[in-house]
Amino acid sequence: MSRIRTVAVVALATSAALAVPTVAQASPLNPYETVSMPLSAAIEDLDIADESRDGYRRSAFPHWIDADRDGCNTRKEVLAEEALGDVSMSECDVTNGLWFSYYDSQTFTDPSKLDIDHMVPLAEAWDSGASGWTLEDRRAYANDLGDSRSLVAVSARSNRSKADQDPATWMPPSAEAHCQYVAEWVAVKTRWDLAVDPAERDALTELAGGCEDVIITVTRA
C-alpha cells in the first residue's frame, strides 16, 4: 500500500526531445487529454488574469472525502501512498511510518506532524478560476488523487507557512525543492486549467529559468 512519491518531471536528454506536443497544439482543451511540454512552454500557455477572492469560503471545496467508499478519506489515502516503506495502520488510520517533507527536507515518523497540502491552495484555485466551477468540480479538485502532484504530505510548519500564497510570495525553504515545486505548481494549474496573475507568471518564469531543461506530463481533469 506504500510507494515512493513519483514526480512526473523528466530531464530532456536531447534537443529532439523538445519536439513534444504543447497545449497550443492541443486546442481546444479536452478533459482526460494527456499533454507533455517543456516547463517554460507550459508557463507561457497558462492564461493570465487578475485574481479575485470575492465570495471565497473554504467550505466551497468539500474535503477530506472518501470518494471510493473504502473507509479511507483523502488525507489517509495520501499518507498511505506517500509513505516511504511500510506503514502501520489501524483500519484506515495511519499510525506510524516514514515520510519525507520535500519542502523543508525533513523526515517524519509521526503522521500527526504532517499536513496534506493542496499544491495550488484552495483559495488560490478559487482566485484563478474555480469560483466559476460547480460544487462537484471543486470537491473533485480538493480531493484529487488522480495526479500525485495535486496533494502532498509535508511538514505542518511548512504548509502553514505557505498558507494560500503563490510562488510570487512563497517558495519552499529548501532551495533544492524549488524546481520540483515550480514544475508541480504549473502541472496542477495546467491539469485544472487555472490562470495565473501577472506577478505569479513573472515569478514562475524567473524560477524556471534556474532549472535545467524539464518537461511536464499532465492529464487534464
Score class of each variant (00 low, 15 high):
Val154Gln: 12
Glu136Val: 14
Ala153Gly: 03
Ala177His: 03
Ala175Thr: 10
Asp164Pro: 02
Ala140Pro: 07
Gly132Arg: 12
Pro172Phe: 01
Gly146Glu: 11
Ala163Thr: 04
Arg160His: 02
Gly129Ile: 03
Tyr181Gln: 02
Val182Ile: 15
Asn143Lys: 13
Trp170Gly: 02
Thr169Phe: 09
Thr134Leu: 09
Ser174Ile: 01
Ser161Ala: 13
Arg160Ile: 00
Leu135Pro: 03
Ala177Arg: 10
Leu135Phe: 05
Gln180Phe: 06
Ser131His: 13
Tyr141Val: 02
Ala183Gln: 05
Ala140Val: 14
Trp133Pro: 14
Glu176Gln: 02
Pro173Ile: 00
Leu145Asp: 08
Asp144Cys: 01
Leu135Trp: 05
Leu145Arg: 13
Arg139Ala: 14
Trp170Asp: 04
Ser174Trp: 10
Leu151Gly: 05
Ser150His: 10
Cys179Asp: 15
Gln165Asn: 12
Leu145Ile: 12
Leu135Arg: 12
Ser148Pro: 01
Ser174Leu: 05
Ala183Asp: 01
Trp133Tyr: 11
Pro167Leu: 01
Gln180Leu: 13
Gly129Lys: 10
Ser128Val: 06
Val154Trp: 08
Pro167Trp: 01
Asp137Asn: 07
Gly132Val: 06
Ser148His: 04
Ser131Leu: 08
Leu135His: 04
Asp164Ile: 03
Arg139Trp: 08
Gly132Tyr: 05
Asn159Pro: 09
Asp147Gln: 07
Cys179Leu: 05
Gly146Cys: 12
Ala153Leu: 07
Asn159Ala: 09
Leu151His: 08
Thr169Lys: 06
Glu136Phe: 01
Arg157Pro: 10
Val154Cys: 11
Leu145Gln: 15
Asp144Tyr: 01
Ala183Tyr: 00
Ser128Glu: 10
Ala183Met: 02
Gln180Tyr: 06
Ala163Arg: 13
Gly146Pro: 13
His178Leu: 07
Ser155Met: 13
Tyr141Thr: 06
